[in-house]
Design a protein around this nucleic acid. Structure first.
Lengths: 345, 345
DNA sequence: CAATATAATGAAAGGCCTTTCGTCTAGACC
DNA sequence: GGTCTAGACGAAAGGCCTTTCATTATATTG
C-alpha cells in the first residue's frame, strides 16, 4: 500500500474533495449535507450519514478562507484600542473575547494611541482583513465607518456607530452623595485628560449633580490632569498641586483609580491619613483598587460587560437581526471600601 | 441597463478586476505590478505607474481571503491563554500584539483554563482559522502541535515547540540573596498551584539556590497554594495558615505578586508590620506591585518581552528563516521596593 | 403505457486573487 | 526576407468552497 497518509492530500490537510472522493460522491453534495443546506433535502438519510461519518473520520475541517471568500462572510470583528494590555482595554477586551467566542466570531486588534491617522490606518487594515464590524475603545470618533461600529465610550453622534456610555450622572451621584453622606463638603475633583473620551461628560455630570444636591464646588479645588501616563504618577503631581494651594478639603473624587492611588501616595507623604484626614474616591474599579492599602472606594464601570454588549450589538447588526441604535447606557456601581470615611470633626 | 457605479462592483468594494477594467488591462497584469512580481519585469514604467495610480485612486485593497487562499499563507498566529484579560496574559499579549503588528501579522485568541480538552478545541479552531503558528500561555503542553509553536512558559520538551523560560535559578537567587543579605534566615515560601506551569521549576530552583547559599528551608514554612483564584485572596488564607503554625519567620517569598499582596494583608491584620516584622518578596512585577502600599519588592518577569520574543521566533520559523530551538531563556530582575527590609534584631 | 412528478445526484459557475505559460508585435541580425 | 529575441501583455488554471441548475433514474398518476 503506497499511501501512508490514507486520507489527506499531499499537504496533510483534508479537503472537501478528499471527503467527496472517499465517499464516492461529488464535492457539492458533500458540502450540501455538511452544511445542512436546503438542497440537501433530497439526500437520503443513509447517504447523509455516510458523508457525515466520513467527514468525522477524516477529521475534515473546511478551509475558513475559501468559505469566507465564497460566502462573503468573515465572522471577524475589529477592535481598535488606545493600547492593548492596559487595565481598561484588557478588561473590555476580555468581555469582547468571551462574547465573540460564544458566537463563533473572532476579533483582530489595532491601536490608535489617540491619534487619528493611526486610527484610520488600523481601521483600513482591519477592514481589509475582513472585519465585519468595529469596536473603538476610548477614541473620540468623528465620523461614520463603512461597517457597523460600537464606540466604548462614545459621546458624539455618528450614523451607524452605537455609543456605549456609562451613566455618568448616576456615577457622579453615587460618588458625591456617598461623600456628602459622610459629611464632606469641601470636595476636590481631579478632571480627566482631554483626550480621554469620558473626561468632558464626566465633568459635566459632576457639575450637574453638585448643583442638584446643593454642593458647591470650589474652582480652586478642581485640578485638570494633563499627562497621559498610565501609572499612578498620573495622580501624584496633581495631588501635590492641590496640597500646595493650602485650600482646605476633606475629600477627593479622582478621575480614575490610577490617579486616586497616586494621590493617596502624595497625601500620605504629606502626612495626611486616608481616610481619616482625606477621603478618596476613585473610578473604574481596576483589580488593583481592591488590593490597595487602604483599599479604594471607587465607582465601578462594568467594563467587561461593556465589551460583551458591544459584540452583541455588533453581531446582531451584522446578521441583520436588529437595527442601529445610537446609544445604550450601562449603570455604574459604587464599591465602598476603606479609602473613604466620615469627615473628621 | 447596466449600473453606474464607476469604480466599484455592486458591493461597493473595489476589486482587482475593477482596477484592471479601469486601466484597460488584464487582472493578471495588474496583480503582477501591484505585487512587484518577477513577471512584471517587462512591464514598462509608464504602464506600471498608470496601474499604481489607478489602484491608489480607486483605493483598491486586495481581498485578504482570496489572497490567503491562493498563496496558502494567512499571516495569522493563534494565542491560547488561561483567560484573556488577567494580568499575566494581558501583558504577554501586549507584547505579542506589538511584535505581530510590526511584522504585519495578526493574532487570534482562545482560552484553555488549564483544561486539556478546551485547549485542544481552541487549538483546532485556531488552526482551522488559518493560524500558521501557536503560542500557548501558562499551559503544560504535553504534545507537539501541527504548526510551529511557542510555550510561555514551557518546561516539557515537545518537538517543534519552543519553550520560553525564565531563568528561575537566577530568579530564586535574586530573591533569596536579597533576603539573606538583609539578614533573613527563617524564610517562608509560598509554592504555586500545580496547574501553574512554573510552579515545579520555581520550587526546584528555590531549593537548589537555598542549598547553594547554605540557607536551610524549614518544611513547616513551605505552604502550597491550592486555589486558582486570581485575586489576592490567593495569598490571604495561606498566610493565615502560616501564622497559625506559630513558627517564627521573618520573611516570605511568595509565588506571585497577587499572593504576596494577599499575604501582606493577612500579616497586617494579624498586627505584623511589613517590612519591619516581616519582609515580603513577590514575583512577576504586575502593575499593582509598584502602587501597593507598601510597594512590593518583587522579581520581575519580562512578560511583554516574552510575548514579543514568541512572535519573533514563530515568524522566523513560519518564514523558514530559522529552525526550531527547544528553549530560550529570559532573565529576571529584582525590583527592590518597600516590602522588604533588614531583619529586626 | 405515456406523461408527469419527484428523488438523488453531478457539473459547473462563481467568490477574488496569483501565477504560469502562451501569444503577438516590433525590432535586431544575418 | 527570414529567423530570433525580447518586450508587453492576456488567457486560463488554479486555491477550496458554496450554490444553482441540469440530468438521470425512479415513482406516481390518468
Amino acid at each position: 500500500m503506497a499511501e501512508k497518509k490514507k486520507t489527506a492530500d499531499s499537504n496533510g490537510i483534508v479537503t472537501l474533495k478528499a471527503v467527496a472522493a472517499h465517499v464516492g460522491l461529488s464535492a457539492g453534495t458533500v458540502s450540501a449535507v455538511l452544511n445542512d443546506a436546503p438542497s440537501a433535502k433530497h439526500i437520503p438519510k443513509p447517504t447523509r450519514e455516510r458523508i457525515i461519518a466520513a467527514a468525522r473520520k477524516l477529521d475534515y475541517r473546511p478551509n475558513f478562507f475559501a468559505r469566507s471568500l465564497r460566502k462573503q462572510r468573515t465572522f471577524t470583528i475589529g477592535v481598535i484600542a488606545h493600547e492593548i494590555g492596559d487595565g481598561y482595554s484588557s478588561t473590555v477586551i476580555a468581555g469582547i473575547e468571551a462574547s465573540a467566542r460564544e458566537k463563533n466570531y473572532f476579533f483582530v486588534t489595532g491601536v490608535h494611541r489617540h491619534n487619528e491617522e493611526l486610527f484610520d490606518k488600523y481601521c483600513r487594515l482591519l477592514l481589509q482583513r475582513g472585519a465585519e464590524g468595529l469596536i473603538s475603545l476610548d477614541f473620540n470618533l468623528t465620523k461614520s465607518l463603512p461597517v457597523p461600529a460600537v464606540a466604548i465610550p462614545g459621546h458624539r453622534e455618528n450614523e451607524g456607530v452605537t455609543n456605549i456610555v456609562l451613566d455618568h450622572h448616576r456615577a457622579a451621584e453615587l460618588a458625591l452623595k456617598h461623600l456628602v453622606d459622610l459629611g464632606h463638603r469641601r470636595i476636590a475633583i481631579l478632571k480627566g485628560h482631554p483626550d480621554s473620551a469620558d473626561s468632558q461628560t464626566r465633568w459635566k455630570a459632576v457639575q450637574d449633580v453638585a448643583q442638584e444636591i446643593g454642593l458647591e464646588l470650589d474652582p480652586e479645588l478642581v485640578i485638570q490632569i494633563d499627562s497621559t501616563d498610565s501609572t499612578p504618577s498620573l495622580g501624584y503631581p496633581f495631588a501635590g498641586k492641590l496640597l500646595d494651594k493650602k485650600r482646605p478639603f476633606t475629600a477627593l473624587f479622582a478621575y480614575n483609580d490610577i490617579s486616586a492611588i497616586g494621590a493617596i501616595r502624595a497625601f500620605q507623604e504629606a502626612g495626611l491619613r486616608v481616610p481619616q484626614d482625606v477621603s478618596v474616591v476613585g473610578f473604574d474599579d481596576i483589580p488593583a483598587a481592591a488590593f490597595h492599602y487602604p483599599s479604594l472606594t471607587t465607582i465601578r464601570q462594568p467594563l467587561r460587560k461593556m465589551g460583551e454588549l458591544a459584540v452583541d450589538l455588533l453581531v446582531r447588526q451584522i446578521e441583520h437581526k436588529s437595527d442601529w441604535q445610537r446609544e445604550i447606557a450601562v449603570q455604574p456601581e459604587i464599591a465602598i471600601r476603606e479609602s473613604s470615611g466620615p469627615v473628621a470633626r
